[in-house]
């Protein structure tokens, strides 16, 4: 039984996949806290679909996925940020237009020039296959970078997220802080996309923070708990996906959803927590 469970660890691709999934879970769990408390879950859908356009374009042009989709993703994130700051246009609608257009472009590029169905499936739903050592290094580097940003800019990030008006009144350059957050979102989604997939990455960004919110009302604790839940779900979900022979994205997300259900059942929301941020 134990041997059977440990069997996949013998394969290098699986070991890489497991490391990436665990780190991606922790990364998305932590970064997702800033998204969930702002009520910006729609942004994650938008951003991951926008990055899909860059993914397809980089495949077509034969450039590195991280480079192509990275530039595309960061540009989209900053564009979304500037749209969000202009209120007369409905931010959600504008994001819907920009990012679904980018996604549609990706689909068209794949349909016209895509080589096989597998890479397309992998992009949409995540795949443990083809997780190279390079992917491990990339996600490790981004995780350390994001950790550094969260620690070093903790108070400006928190102040701007909670109370942008007063933060600005107190002399913080909130537009820069928000741009920094958008870049953090974009690079985190970028390096997590390979194992989680475009369609399911939003769940990795939303479910662990939502679960953590049920367990604490402290922001710093929520960051830690959410990252831990994300990492655990990444690890367990990746193993589950191997044994059930399903894509890695659904495996990870179903474990996260189960974790939420369990916590929700145990910690029946009190009046105070009923309306989750």
């Amino acid at each position: 039984m134990i041997d059977e469970l440990l069997q996949p660890v013998g394969y290098e691709f699986f070991r890489n996949g497991l490391i990436v999934a665990t780190l991606a879970g922790a990364l998305c769990g932590g970064v997702g806290v800033y998204i969930v408390v702002r009520g910006m879950s729609y942004l994650t859908h938008g951003l991951s679909h926008a990055i899909f356009g860059g993914f397809a374009a980089s495949a077509l042009l034969g450039v590195s996925f991280l480079l192509g989709a990275g530039v595309w993703g960061i540009a989209s994130a900053l564009a979304i940020n500037s749209v969000t700051r202009r209120r007369p246009i409905g931010a959600d609608a504008a994001i819907g237009v920009v990012t679904t257009a980018s996604f549609a472009l990706g689909l068209i590029l794949f349909a016209l020039f895509g080589r096989s169905g597998r890479s397309f499936d992998a992009a949409l739903f995540g795949s443990v296959l083809g997780v190279s050592t390079g992917s491990v290094v990339a996600i490790l580097a981004v995780s350390l970078l994001v950790l550094g940003v969260v620690i070093f800019f903790y108070r400006p990030l928190l102040f701007t997220t909670f109370d942008p008006e007063v933060a600005a009144a107190s002399g913080l350059r909130t537009s820069r802080v928000e741009a920094l957050l958008m870049v953090v979102f974009a690079v985190s989604i970028l390096v997590s996309m390979q194992v989680l997939g475009v369609t399911l990455i939003a769940a990795a960004l939303v479910i662990p923070p939502t679960t953590a919110r049920l367990l604490t009302h402290s922001f710093s604790k929520m960051l830690i708990i959410s990252s831990a839940i994300g990492a655990g779900c990444g690890f367990v979900g990746m193993n589950l996906s191997y044994h059930l022979d399903v894509q890695s994205g659904p495996g990870i997300v179903i474990v996260a959803a189960l974790a939420f259900v369990v916590v929700y059942a145990i910690k029946r929301p009190s009046g105070m927590q009923r309306a989750i941020a």
Binding site: F152, R155, L158, F159, V166, A167, G171, L172
Partner: peptide, 9 residues
């Protein structure tokens, strides 16, 4: 959080 002269948590 408002005491941003120090950035750490």
């Amino acid at each position: 959080m408002a005491r941003t002269s120090r950035r750490f948590a």
